[in-house]
Structure formats: structure tokens, C-alpha cells
Amino acid sequence: MHNDSSTKCWSEAGLEWCEIAQKNDFRMFFIMPYTLQQLGNVSGKRILDLGCGEGGYSRELAQRGALVTAIDCSEFFINYSTNKAKEQGLHITHFIRNSCDLYDIQDNYFDIVLCSMMLMDCENLDGTVNEIARVLKSGGKVFASVLHPCFKGKDINWTGEGNESMVVFVKNYFFPKEWEMPPTNGLKGNVVWRHRTLEEYVKLFVKNNLRITDLNEPMPTEEQIKMSPRIGWLTKIPMFLFWELEK
């Protein structure tokens, strides 16, 4: 294991983060439903849930018949995810690995690699994308989501109250930065956040022979806005960006 900044900070996140993650409105009512919709029928498919965190996606995919391998750099997250899978009677293979060093994982093995809200966290993004391409089958797909580089970053501020008055000020986009803050509101302890340009992501995909087949900036439905009014912000400005790639 490489004890880089990504690994170090996420290894210090514990039970409180796992519990909050399963209640976060953006994740549970918007990001996860959209991602699962895009994945479609996963029955019988070998799926790598890379940066699995507390394992919510892994469990849902296993319930839908996928053959799931869950990987995270945090020993605590992997133990939590393993125990939750056992409680629900689900067979999920778990490994503690850096995303940039998936040692002992077979080449050309997975039908799908899922990277939900994790690529922006990787210190070694180049190595991570290279490993994704290595373990993915020819014709296999990558489903990746990130904080939208154009509208969510260190020098990008959201202001205003309510959907209609929401405004974003962009002070700096072209110079990627790192900063530390809690991973979500109400949680103590900081993690490292990273801003990367769209160009950097795309060039790494191209470098590793991953073809962009789709890109989406989805808007929430009325039903989703009813579940959480602040999701309505996303009717004006996309906070999340979703890629579909193919090897």
C-alpha cells in the first residue's frame, strides 16, 4: 500500500462518515439512482466498485445479480463493507488496495469498472486510470462521476438561497489545487480535496485508450426535488459530471 495523501486522509474517516454517507441527500436521491440507471441490467456481469467506501453501491449491485469486487484504500471502509455484505447474505469480494496499484487483480477481467465520486480524490490519477484500463475487458465500460470541474472547486463559490437565486462565482479554473475540509457537512475531520480541469481528465482517458462514449450533466426530477429541496439547485447549475467510457 502507498501511504499517499488520499490513502492517509480517507483511512482516518470512520463510522460517522459511513453513517452520514448513507443519509446524504445528493448521494442517495440523485447520484446513486442516476448511476444505477445508467448501469442498466448488471446481472451476471463482473463489476469492480473502485473506491467503494462503505460499500453501498457494491451491495446494491450484488442484489441485482452482479459479481462484485469492492476495493478501497481504507481498511476501516473495507471491514465495514465486508460486515454489511455478510449481514445481508451477499457475496462480495473485498480488497484493500490503492486505486493506482491494483496488484493481484487480473488483467482484462471486469465487464464494468464503477468509479463513483472518487477520481477527483486520487493523488495519483494517472496511475489510477492506467489500472482501470488494465483490469477492464476489451469492450468493457467505465462509469465515472466527479464533482463538476467547472462548477465545484476550491476557488468556485455557490451563493444564494433557494433554487432561483443560486449563483456560482468562478475565481480560478486553470490551475489545479488541493485543499482540506470535511468530506460532508456536519462531519468532523478533514480530507484532501482536488480540483482538476476537464482537459486533464480527458487527456488521461485518451492516453489509456479509454474512449468517451457518453457524458451527462443530469438535472433532477420533480420527485427528487421533493425529497430534498436543495437538490433543486441542480436545475440551474450541474454540481456533478458523469462519464461513460469504453475500452
Rank of each mutant, 00 (worst) to 15 (best):
Q37P: 01
L136V: 09
C100M: 14
R211H: 09
K171R: 10
V142F: 10
M227Y: 11
T82C: 13
K188V: 12
C122T: 13
R97F: 02
S138C: 11
L204V: 10
G189E: 08
T221V: 12
K203G: 03
T82M: 11
G65Q: 00
M166L: 13
K84Y: 13
M239D: 13
A62F: 12
G186H: 08
E180A: 08
F29H: 06
K207Y: 11
I156K: 02
V192I: 08
L245N: 05
D126P: 00
I237N: 03
L125I: 11
M181Q: 12
T93V: 13
G40T: 07
L102N: 09
G153F: 12
L198R: 03
D107R: 00
W193Y: 09
M166N: 02
Y109A: 08
V129W: 07
D49E: 02
E217A: 05
L36W: 03
F205Y: 06
L90C: 12
E223P: 07
L198Y: 02
I71V: 14
T128W: 10
T221N: 01
V135W: 06
H195K: 03
L114F: 10
F29C: 07
K152N: 15
R230D: 03
S138P: 13
L125W: 05
I212V: 15
K203P: 04
W233K: 05
M32R: 15
N124T: 06
T128D: 07
L15Q: 15
V191T: 12
S74M: 11
D4C: 15
F95T: 04
R97V: 06
I156G: 01
Y34C: 00
M117L: 15
F26A: 00
A66L: 05
F110E: 04
C122N: 07
F26M: 01
F26P: 00
G89N: 14
R46D: 12
S228D: 07
S145I: 11
T159W: 02
E246L: 02
T197F: 09
Y80V: 07
V146Y: 05
K207A: 09
G44A: 10
L210H: 06
S81T: 01
F77N: 11
K203M: 10
G153R: 13
E12N: 15
V168Q: 05
S6V: 15
G40P: 08
R230N: 08
E217S: 06
F77M: 15
A70S: 11
Q88K: 14
W233C: 04
A66K: 02
T221M: 13
R134W: 03
T184P: 05
R194S: 01
G140M: 03
S145L: 14
G89D: 14
K154T: 00
S138K: 14
E131Y: 05
C18P: 03
A62Y: 04
L61F: 02
K171M: 08
T221W: 00
G14E: 12
K236I: 14
N190P: 01
Y57Q: 11
R64P: 00
A133Q: 03
V146C: 04
G51K: 15
L61S: 12
V42C: 04
N157R: 04
N3S: 14
R230C: 09
Q63D: 00
